[in-house]
Design a protein around this nucleic acid. Sequence first.
DNA 1: TCGCACATGTAACGTGTTACATGATTCA
DNA 2: TGAATCATGTAACACGTTACATGTGCGA
Lengths: 184, 184
Amino acid sequence: MGKKAPTRLDYALLGLIHQAPMSGYDLRKVMAETALGDYSSSPGAIYPALARLEKNGYIEGEEDRSRSLRPRKLYQPTTGGRKIFREWLSQEVTRYDVSHDLDEVMLRFAFHSVLGSSEATRRFLEQLATEIEGYVDDLKGQRKLIPKEAPIHARLALEAGLEQNRAAARWARKALRHFTGDGA
Amino acid sequence: MGKKAPTRLDYALLGLIHQAPMSGYDLRKVMAETALGDYSSSPGAIYPALARLEKNGYIEGEEDRSRSLRPRKLYQPTTGGRKIFREWLSQEVTRYDVSHDLDEVMLRFAFHSVLGSSEATRRFLEQLATEIEGYVDDLKGQRKLIPKEAPIHARLALEAGLEQNRAAARWARKALRHFTGDGA
DNA sequence: TCGCACATGTAACGTGTTACATGATTCA
DNA sequence: TGAATCATGTAACACGTTACATGTGCGA
């Protein structure tokens, strides 16, 4: 009976309906058209996800017959849904998160406005920057371990990861400046 | 009977045993200790993957009893396995690859030494750089579409993706210089 | 009337996850 | 004797993928 942890897709959907009530069809369009698309826009993913979110009491669907088309179900988060969503957003950013799932961390950041606290976002970005910088050091350590006789490609591939993470760290430090000095 | 397309994990394993024959246990260690870890190191993933690669005729396992421990199976790619691996490496780099699975593209690059042709790698990096640069432009277009009243977080999250891709593009252009001017 | 946009779903299938099972050898 | 390392595997489960099924209203 212990509810399963929601998936990234679940959280993406939950986040979107925090902004405005949406139907499965709406959600599919948003997913397909924006960078969120990585989290799938196929009906075989979206509709079952909505069904389990509803079953777990995180969202509530209401039939909308105001249009003459086939009626659609408009979903909204429940109180419980808002709660677990905020908890997800507020989770600590760990080294593991950064090295294994930076995309999910970024997804969390993208929805951080839901918390309505620039203090929380500041903490989040501070942790994020610190952990990415630590991970960059890890990667530098790994680079040293690559034997000299190894093909250049291996080293270069690692450097690609390094550069992307350096860029992410710089971004986090820069983003931090957007949330310091005001109380929005 | 039409063989399924191998997964990224399959290709990662196939690539590793191109360097030296390895057992499932060896492969798990490499996956766990290096950045390749994203492609899973759990026995429930590795052993079934090896089993299906063998079933499809891409790898061949041989019992090694030279150690007094429990015998291990040392895997090597077959001719067919080498062939599909080279085909995978030689695939064109598309916009779709770059925007949906840059990690897989980087995995391909990491194993590019198997082709033993700096001409092929040059082409690969040239395409990669071009497509990432195109994707960066797409993202700039998306950024313009974000309504002004949207929370800053959404725009910043998109900018994180932008910066990471810009870094990847710079990396590709720089890596390209390693493969121009010599015939290795 | 043909096809497209709207709109929701299901079924088969493959793959990864976690947890479990098994067993030999080495070393403290 | 017990723990750690070597070594291979299976079982239950959840999720995403692709493809299919169904049906309305609107414009060309």
